Amino acid sequence: MIKGLVVIEPKIYSDERGFFYEFFNRQQLLKYGVNEEFVQGNHSKSSFGVLRGLHFQIQRAQGKLIRVLRGEILDVVVDLRKGSETFGEYFKIVLSESNRKILFVPKGFAHGFLTLKENTEIEYLCTDFYAPDFDSGILWNDKDLNIDWELEKYDLKEDDLIISEKDKNQGTLKEFIEKGGEIN
């Protein structure tokens, strides 16, 4: 795993009534070395085969605490931290309503996900506010990144994916580097 990323597997209390778990606990995050203040919460719903990303803000970078409420995603992050030993490398993980894993992504990463089930809902807390003037991204299928989105595993083809025009037209990692390649 890339340094700075944290996967949390919360303790889940289940009985005949249902379940309970803490998805956010500052003391627990501090034990993992996460000392961030979260200022914004986002909730999104996507159909099967939606691919969102790879997004980041070039200024006012956001750390994110991500979980799936319903459905399942293949969550992918790319290290864009200048000077990092793993710059340009990616990490991926399946987050789902059944595994209840939570992923902390620090500032300096591009983030994206592929929905693996219909009506998937994710929630994420952010360490800074959305700043549209600094919104940026990297092309999800950048050949230099060579991310394995595992399409075949989920019986998907590239033509099946539902991708926004903005995400289809993002630049490559190489272009990001040529522009200075720095997230603040």
Rank of each mutant, 00 (worst) to 15 (best):
E97A: 12
E97N: 07
E97H: 04
N99L: 06
N99D: 12
N99T: 13
N99V: 09
R100D: 02
R100G: 02
R100W: 03
R100I: 05
K101N: 12
K101T: 08
K101H: 10
I102R: 04
I102Q: 02
L103F: 01
L103Y: 02
L103N: 01
L103G: 02
F104P: 02
F104E: 02
F104D: 00
V105H: 01
P106N: 01
F109D: 04
A110P: 04
A110R: 03
H111V: 02
G112A: 07
G112I: 00
G112D: 07
F113I: 01
F113C: 01
F113Y: 06
F113G: 00
F113K: 02
L114R: 04
L114A: 05
T115G: 04
T115D: 08
T115F: 00
K117G: 03
K117L: 05
K117Q: 13
K117M: 03
E118N: 13
E118Q: 12
N119C: 14
N119I: 11
T120N: 06
T120R: 00
E121W: 10
I122T: 10
I122V: 12
I122W: 03
I122E: 02
I122H: 01
I122S: 06
E123H: 11
Y124A: 07
L125N: 05
C126L: 10
T127G: 08
T127H: 10
D128F: 05
D128M: 00
F129S: 14
F129G: 02
Y130G: 05
Y130T: 07
Y130P: 06
A131G: 13
A131W: 05
A131E: 11
P132M: 09
P132Y: 09
D133W: 09
D133T: 07
D133G: 08
D133N: 11
D135E: 15
D135S: 13
D135A: 11
S136L: 04
S136Y: 08
G137S: 05
G137A: 10
G137H: 04
I138G: 00
I138F: 00
L139N: 07
W140P: 03
W140Y: 15
D142P: 04
D142C: 14
D142M: 09
K143V: 13
K143E: 15
D144M: 14
D144Q: 15
D144C: 12
D144G: 13
L145M: 11
N146T: 06
I147S: 05
I147N: 02
D148F: 06
L151C: 07
E152A: 13
K153N: 14
K153R: 15
K153H: 10
Y154F: 13
Y154S: 03
D155Q: 13
D155C: 09
L156C: 09
L156K: 11
L156I: 03
L156E: 07
L156D: 11
K157N: 14
E158S: 12
E158H: 14
E158T: 15
D159H: 12
D159F: 11
D160T: 10
D160R: 04
D160F: 05
L161S: 13
L161P: 10
I162G: 10
I162R: 10
